[in-house]
C-alpha cells in the first residue's frame, strides 16, 4: 500500500489508480485477512476521495479583463450567449 500521499491530498487520478489496485488485490484474494481489512478501509477512503472530486463539478466561467497594454487586470463574467 502506498501511504506516501495522504488520501485527502490525492488528485482524482491518483486516487482512481490506487482504488483500481486495491480492488484488484481484494478480488485476487491472496492477501491475509488482517491485511484485506486494512485494504478495504483504504479502498473506502479512496472511493470517498474520488466521489468528492467528482462532486466538485462546478461550472464557473470568467473572462480575463485586460488593460490597454494587454496585461490582465482581473476577471469579468463571460456572456458567451
Amino acid at each position: 500500500m502506498s501511504d506516501e500521499t495522504p488520501v485527502k491530498d490525492m488528485s482524482f487520478e491518483q486516487a482512481m489508480a490506487e482504488l483500481e489496485q486495491v480492488v484488484a488485490r481484494l478480488e485476487r484474494g491472496d492477501v491475509a485477512l488482517d491485511e484485506s481489512i486494512a485494504l478495504y478501509e483504504r479502498g473506502a477512503k479512496l472511493k470517498a476521495r474520488c466521489e468528492q472530486k467528482l462532486n466538485e463539478a462546478e461550472e464557473k466561467v470568467a473572462k480575463i479583463t485586460l488593460d490597454a497594454d494587454g496585461n490582465p487586470t482581473g476577471t469579468a463574467p463571460l456572456d458567451a450567449g
Binding site: 480492488v23 481484494l26 478480488e27 484474494g29 484485506s36 473506502a44 472511493k47 466521489e51 467528482l54
Partner: peptide, 27 residues
C-alpha cells in the same frame, strides 16, 4: 465524462464490497 467516472467509482466500490464479503463468507 463525470457520469462515467461516478459509475466507475460505484462499480469499484461494489466490487470491493463483494470481494470482501465473499472472502469473509469463505473464511
Amino acid at each position: 465524462v463525470r457520469l462515467d467516472l461516478l459509475s466507475w467509482v460505484a462499480q469499484q466500490g461494489s466490487r470491493m464490497t463483494n470481494a470482501m464479503g465473499q472472502r469473509l463468507q469463505t473464511r
